[in-house]
Design a protein around this nucleic acid. Structure first.
Length: 749
DNA sequence: GTACTCTCAGTTTTT
DNA sequence: CTGAGAGTAC
């Protein structure tokens, strides 16, 4: 080890750090908690700190455990550390909680009854497995959606609870208490197929770490990791926290940075309480607060401060900036979602004309489905865009199928993968055969793959089926044999060809088939970046980033959650309507807590903007095919009037005039504004396609006004009785039937 | 066993 | 409106 840094020249990477940031970087011994607001340079502190530790010789790269929130963030951090040190750095344990835990678990899988080549199930597989189990248990999968049940179990895992730890208290009376037994069965089934799910990666490691019989494993990591760095600490859940704490007990050199106001993953088990607990677990922890924002104008910060001030549960801080006042925030009410997309499209084009790069602009939405409207509009306008987080590459059917082939080859016990492709392309293996295979497998305690091998040796199958399955298995045996002999890219190509899967899409005449062939090609070529098949599959299971070919300038469209940690000079925040944002479901499920998390999400959205911010809402929005009427989000009212420039189409909204459920100043009877056809269907000349207007017979939409507890209506027709029950409307029809709907989601009757 | 039609539930947010 | 799953006709 080198001598202390005192004698060294001040490293150039300290330049530009303020005193608070610098203190946070230099405080390298003992536990440190950096509580800092948006745009105060939290990640920069971590990055510099990482470089500093290496530079001063306190630890080698391999002795630092650095946890970030996304693999992309990890990648960026790796690059930046390399820049700061003037050389690329290898061997760092730098990644997400899950990727790091997976790396550990691969080395000690036997301690939890797995083999080192275990498969990591994706959420889709999880749900399918749960469904199978529920059906075997004769549970009604209609009454209890496997997805919901699986969600519950995931939540238990987030809390670091293995089945034995779960008390009836934690399960509640959900499903009459059978949740726990489902959890047990699910876990044993995972082991039977040598697989685990996302939650298990951490959970298994915690189990190993806590088991005195395997003490040497934790001790080894204690010796290894001299420093631990954690970004976005406010979003850690209990399992992640336990994992960290166990590891940090070694050196106690743990540094976490976080912002309680940006905690937006409560629904995934994240606990802001982890921040408070930090000082209890590490009584000598240094706490450093950073409040100076280097990102946004004061106007934007004031709006963010004003909004978040409405939350009761927060540690409390007020950001300030010396970046000047900046432009006012534009708030705009529009007729419907299409008009909103049209307006944003116009603004984007105008910004572009004024010399603004499209890469400076982002559209941040509450929920994934909202991206479609903007995509459609941007395509019409010819504005290049990219959607981050949408249906990802790896989630596409053809990619998942191809991966299933690879998985079965690498790990024959992977029943779920095998089931996916046993009849894709069609081989005449249907439900009946599959059932027979399942029965045989279960009766003999073997995997489906083994069951097939077994049954093809007997005469229990029809001759045709027998030869089909034999051929199927033979292929896999052959490929597996080539695993070490052939380059993995070639092998992958070969598998796709010999299996007939590629051929299936090549001969498919549907419109999307060529795209699928293209994606498969891309999948195979992307494997070239990896050393081996095993490494590639590991990457797929964990990283699963969508391959963005980011050539040229593009507007970025993504969810607010996806925008965490990012910043853009110009930010559009559409869809600020009650029920959508804040999300009705969030409020229904967790009440005030949910609302406050939504508000933090608004805070995150606003603070992504450096210079200009646009917020909009629509009077009606299409959902499930028909229109529903909307009222502006309460968050709109929480924006400070003096910083807002309000433009109104339709005279819909005047700032400060509308209160939560008070729609005065919001005229829901306004007529749809005239939009010239030329404008509505404008297109880049190069495309020259025809358009369908997408007009369809609309049921007469009606507007429901909700003022206090009174509901009036103008299009319900005769003989309807409406009751208000909480935030639901109970509508009774003249034929005696009735329907309950959300107050602000009054629609299709 | 497959291909077609019909019904019905569903849209938060993610590693 | 879409997509999954169930049901029906070959």
């Amino acid at each position: 080890m080198h001598a202390s840094s005192n004698h060294m020249m001040e490293p150039p990477y300290f330049q530009g750090l303020n005193s608070g940031q610098r203190t946070a970087v230099e405080t390298t011994e003992g536990p440190v908690l950096v509580l800092a607001g948006a745009g105060t340079g939290k990640t920069r502190v971590l990055t510099t700190r990482l470089a500093h530790i290496i530079q001063t010789g306190r630890a080698f790269p391999g002795q630092i455990l650095s946890v970030t929130f996304t693999n992309k963030a990890a990648q960026e951090m790796r690059e930046r550390v390399g820049q700061l040190l003037g050389q690329s750095v290898d061997g760092m344990w730098l990644g997400t909680f899950h990727s790091l835990a997976a790396r550990m678990l691969r080395r000690c899988a036997d301690r939890v009854g797995l083999e080192g080549n275990f498969t990591i199930l994706d959420p889709d597989d999880q749900v399918r497995l749960m469904k199978q189990i529920m059906q075997e248990q004769n549970l009604d999968t209609k009454k209890y959606a496997p997805k919901v049940v699986m969600g519950r179990i995931d939540r238990l895992k987030d809390q670091g609870l293995v089945p034995d730890d779960v008390t009836m208290d934690q399960v509640g009376d959900f499903m009459g208490g059978s949740l726990l037994s489902l959890y047990r069965i699910y876990q044993s089934r995972l082991k039977a197929v040598n697989a685990c799910d996302f939650g298990d990666l951490l959970l298994h490691m915690i189990t190993v770490f806590k088991n005195p019989q395997h003490a040497e494993i934790l001790e080894d990591y204690h010796r290894r990791f001299k420093y631990i760095l954690v970004d976005e600490y406010q979003d850690t859940n209990v399992a992640q926290y336990l994992w960290l704490r166990l590891l940090a007990q070694g050196s106690k050199n743990i540094c976490c940075v976080g912002d309680d106001d940006q905690s937006i993953y409560g629904w995934r088990g994240a606990e802001v309480g982890n921040i408070l607990r930090f000082e209890k677990d590490f009584p000598d922890a240094k706490v450093i607060r950073l409040e100076e924002n280097y990102r946004s104008t004061n106007t934007i910060l004031s709006a963010a401060n004003a909004i978040i001030a409405n939350n009761e549960s927060r540690l409390g801080k007020t950001l300030f900036s010396s970046a000047g006042e900046g432009e006012k925030i534009t708030v705009r009410g529009l007729w419907d979602g299409e008009a909103e997309a049209r307006w944003i499209g116009e603004e984007v084009e105008q910004l572009q004309r004024r010399g603004r790069s499209l890469s400076d602009i982002s559209v941040l939405v509450r929920a994934g489905f909202q991206t479609r409207e903007f995509e459609e509009r941007f395509i019409q306008l010819g504005v290049p865009y990219r959607v981050i987080g949408g249906p990802r590459f790896y989630e596409r059917m053809e990619v998942r199928d191809a991966l299933a082939y690879f998985r079965v080859m690498a790990q024959p016990r992977d029943d779920l993968a095998l089931e996916r492709i046993i009849n894709t392309p069609k081989r005449g293996v249907g439900n009946a055969t599959l059932l027979q295979l399942h029965e045989h497998a279960r009766a003999h305690g073997m995997s489906l793959y083994e069951a097939i091998k077994d049954l093809t040796q007997t005469d229990h199958l029809k001759p045709k089926m027998k030869s089909t399955l034999m051929e199927f298995i033979d292929h896999f045996e052959l490929w597996r044999d080539q695993l070490d002999k052939q380059h993995h890219v070639d092998l992958a190509q070969r598998i796709l060809e010999e299996s007939g899967y590629l051929e299936m899409w090549k001969t498919d005449k549907s419109a999307e088939a060529p795209g699928r062939v293209e994606n498969l090609k891309e999948l195979v070529s992307s494997m070239g970046e990896f050393e081996s098949f095993a490494e590639f599959l590991e990457h797929i299971a964990l990283v699963m980033e969508n391959q963005n070919n980011t050539q040229g300038e593009q507007v970025t469209i993504m969810t607010l959650h996806g925008a965490k940690g990012l910043e853009f000079p110009v930010v559009f925040l559409p869809g600020w309507e009650e029920g959508l944002f804040p999300s009705q479901r969030s409020m229904d499920e967790t009440g005030l807590q949910g609302l406050e998390e939504e508000r933090r999400l608004a805070y995150v959205g606003i603070t992504r903007a450096r210079e200009a911010l646009y917020i909009s809402f629509a009077a009606r929005r299409r959902m499930y095919g028909s229109y529903i009427d909307c009222i502006p989000s309460r968050f709109v009212d929480e924006l400070p009037e003096e910083y807002v420039l309000s433009e109104t189409e339709l005279g819909l909204y005047q700032p400060g005039r509308s209160q939560h459920w008070d729609t005065s100043g919001y005229d829901l009877h306004a007529q749809k504004p005239d939009v010239s056809p030329a404008d509505r269907f404008r297109t880049p000349a190069s495309r020259g396609e025809g358009y369908t207007t997408n007009k369809r017979s609309q049921k007469s939409n009606f507007a429901a006004f909700i003022r206090g507890d009174r509901v009036t209506h103008d299009a319900f027709g005769e003989g309807l009785v409406v009751h208000v029950d909480g935030n639901k409307l109970d509508i009774q029809f003249d034929d005696g039937t009735h329907k309950r709907i959300m107050a602000n989601f009054v629609d299709k009757l």
